[in-house]
């Protein structure tokens, strides 16, 4: 025992050495920018080509929280916050419901779906495509007066005159929501299916023996067993959703109509890099978003830790499960599971 400790001590310096590149890059490209962003939030830094060393751009002398107060009171920021939350919620609900439905179908042994692998590949396809391209493509599809959507609706006789979709706030937001759902439901489905595949098959078998119906099995066995993965998806999606940028920025010109598709990330970008170059306001807004995200990350951190502890407690059982998932994943990787 003692000997082993010595060996470990001998090699422990390599632990430090091997994390040096990560640590340097992290300090330089993440931590420093965060503090710098926060610092800028307390300065008067604005205007093109200025830095905090430019005279008059340093720390605010009086009322050091001015930028933060201004941003919170900023009507456009409030609106962008509302838009962001609204568009995220309305994209997440159909996305998770659809994913659960597909999961229940794809994992049910009693009605084996042929070509499950191909469907998964196709549903996941939109997620891989550049969001900027998707935004502009959908901008063209919903174009007025000659876009494909107008053409389709007219051909099937739903409309007589072309519709200018992006003049309506609800439609513009709806299209953003649709795109987000469309891009992400495949990803969510694949994740949840993997979670369900990680559940011990014996549980399902015994349920079947007990005569549980499809619906009962799903609600009473499948769902409770994928709680963790659902929470994981929820939190990652929420953090991603709070930073929605590419689609709203490129879908409708100037985040219109009437700021209906302006998200907080677009707001921050506009403050800092368009118009008056209000770096300080953008810095403050970034920090507000940062605090929100840190809180959400803490929740995620808590969930994950909880899982590890649970693994320790129910050592054997859980380890078997993990091992099984391992094998499953390996199979998937080798293409057998497809």
């Amino acid at each position: 025992m003692k000997n082993k400790n010595n060996i470990n001590a001998k090699y422990s310096k390599f632990g430090y050495i091997f994390v040096i590149p990560f640590t340097i890059a992290f300090l330089f490209f993440m931590l420093y920018p965060i503090f710098y962003t926060a610092f800028i939030g307390f300065t008067g830094l604005k205007g093109l080509g200025n830095t905090i060393s430019t005279p008059g751009m340093g720390l605010l002398k009086e009322n050091i929280f001015k930028n933060f107060k201004d941003v919170i009171a900023n009507g456009t920021f409030q609106q962008s916050m509302k838009n962001t939350v609204k568009m995220w919620v309305l994209n997440f609900i159909p996305q998770i419901l659809l994913a659960l439905l597909l999961t229940s179908w794809f994992t049910d042994k009693r009605s084996k779906v042929q070509g499950e692998g191909i469907f998964k590949v196709i549903f996941y396809l939109p997620n891989i495509i550049t969001a900027a391209t998707v935004a502009i493509l959908f901008g063209a599809i919903f174009g007025y007066p000659m876009g494909p959507m107008n053409d389709l609706l007219a051909r099937f006789g739903f409309i007589d005159e072309p519709v200018h979709f992006f003049l309506s706030k609800n439609v513009a937001q709806g299209v953003v929501i649709f795109i987000q759902t469309w891009m992400w439901y495949g990803y969510t489905t694949v994740n949840i299916i993997a979670g369900v595949n990680g559940i011990s098959p014996e549980i399902f078998e015994s349920a079947e023996v007990d005569g549980a119906s499809r619906t009962q099995t799903f609600f009473q066995i499948t769902l409770p067993n994928i709680k963790t993965i659902m929470l994981f998806i929820l939190v990652t999606s929420l953090i991603g959703g709070l930073n929605m940028f590419d689609i709203p920025k490129l879908l409708v010109t100037n985040s219109g109509p009437d700021n209906a598709t302006k998200t907080t990330s677009v707001f921050i970008y506009d403050q800092a890099f368009a118009g008056s170059y209000l770096y300080n306001k953008a810095g403050a807004a970034s920090m507000i978003m940062f605090v929100i995200i840190v809180i959400l990350s803490a929740i995620l951190f808590y969930i994950m830790r909880d899982k590890d502890e649970a693994a320790l407690k129910k050592m054997k059982k859980q380890q078997d499960k993990l091992r099984l998932a391992e094998i499953k994943a390996q199979e998937l990787l080798n293409g057998k599971g497809m």
């Binding site: 205007g47 456009t76 009437d258 700021n259 403050q271 118009g275 008056s276 209000l278």
Partner: peptide, 13 residues
């Protein structure tokens, strides 16, 4: 009013 709000919120004016 909304026009004024937009200008105030986004520009240094």
């Amino acid at each position: 009013a909304d026009f004024k709000q937009n200008v105030a919120d986004n520009l240094d004016v």
